[in-house]
Design a protein around this nucleic acid. Structure first.
Lengths: 234, 234
DNA sequence: TCGCATTTGTACGTATGTATC
DNA sequence: GGATACATACGTACAAATGCG
């Protein structure tokens, strides 16, 4: 089910990343994009809206649609979907610490909106970027949604597997971000000291149908991680 | 310049907050909202889109537009604009630590996209919620945009002053979130210990015209602060 | 300073597709 | 399979901000 606006949005984004509009610092006008992609104005505007919401461009009435400058130092853009693989792509290495089948206890059943006893995959992974330990991820996946997982999948990207192979559409992600202290276990994995600060992200991911399929706790290396959040107001 | 979609969006949001749809757990259908507000379908959809992007509702095709549950424990929603006053409203007290007129040095001129030597207001504030120290904010405001500030304004909400009194429209906010350690000064203000973890947010705010008017560094009490980020995918 | 062209923003209408119930 | 409800996509017209002459 491919849509025109998604196609246009992706095409524009790739052109931005390819540096096509870097010199001008702005996109072509709406009329030019209409001509270029042979779609209606609404479709161009819907495509552009996606990029606006992701903080990539900044339209200014009467003037144009300007590229937003990228802040220094590999931030994880919270609008990008599963930040890590989107931001660092091929630089990531993953070490699987634990991988097993479990059952939802009461607390997990509550946050994952499933029955107590539902089969869950539990995965603990250490992910490094250019060899530097970056984040310890404790993940729970609902086996009703993701019937099968293996080492190869969890060593690369589970999200890609869900979308490309299982053909399921990810709809919504809730993320709570806070700071805390490292326990001994996480500190060792991240090559930091027990009691050091930690940047913690607790995530709940849902399909378009609203079904929760992932609940995970990410303990980030505070020296290496920055989150970027860009907002637009109406 | 009041728009219909903003009116409808605000109206729906107030109804949600007032608990009008809590029992059903979902909004009226698009057709019902069209009838209710006497606007076109596109306008209803645009109004609803705002709430979707803010993570307040979750439309599911063929089914309805469902309310998204609010996570426990007073998170600051990163989609809400200037989180603090939006989230905690009347519980906030502000203590002004420092307030002076300065000039942009090279670093500030760079991030604020103004000339070196531009007049800036510098404000240091400690904000508490229900008497608990919550965040130390170090803010720089471009005096070309905000020609006048006084104690009363900085003790309440500068953003409200900009919008309601100066009638300027806030367009974009960039926010970088990281964790670090408290220095002695901030620790004392937050009633924590030097070296304790800190949740740090560094913000740049722009008007709709793209002019940067605020650059601020917020040092949050890590025991009290949680950020909430909700995303939708296409 | 004024006016005009450019460019994005708002609002309406219509038709058809697609997922859910 | 039919009804319901959200999603995509086309079109039109006018408003509002910017920028240039």
């Amino acid at each position: 089910m491919n849509t025109k606006y998604k196609y246009v949005s992706d095409a524009i984004e790739m052109d931005i990343e390819g540096g096509k509009y870097a010199k001008a610092g702005k996109l072509p006008t709406e009329d030019e994009l209409i001509e270029l992609y042979q779609v209606s104005r609404n479709t161009v505007r819907k495509a552009v809206d996606i990029l606006v919401n992701r903080g990539i461009i900044m339209p200014i009435q009467g003037s144009g649609m300007f590229l937003r400058k990228i802040p220094a130092g590999g931030c994880i853009n919270l609008e990008n979907f599963h930040g890590l693989t989107a931001t660092f792509a091929d630089k990531i290495t993953t070490r699987v610490i634990d991988f097993k089948l479990t059952q939802a206890d009461e607390k997990l059943a509550d946050v994952m909106q499933c029955a107590v006893g539902t089969s869950l995959y539990f995965v603990e992974r250490l992910r490094s970027i250019d060899g530097v330990p970056f984040v310890v991820e404790y993940s729970h996946f609902n086996k009703d949604v993701i019937p099968y997982l293996n080492m190869e999948i969890i060593e690369t990207s589970i999200y890609r597997y869900i979308m490309q192979d299982l053909k399921k559409q990810i709809g919504y992600v809730d993320r709570v971000i806070e700071a805390g202290r490292l326990n001994a276990h996480d500190a060792e994995l991240l090559e930091l000291a027990k009691g050091d600060p930690a940047l913690i992200s607790i995530n709940r991911a849902m399909l378009k149908s609203g079904v929760v399929f992932d609940y995970s706790i990410d303990i980030h290396n505070y020296k290496e991680t920055k989150f970027l959040k860009r907002s637009n107001f109406v």
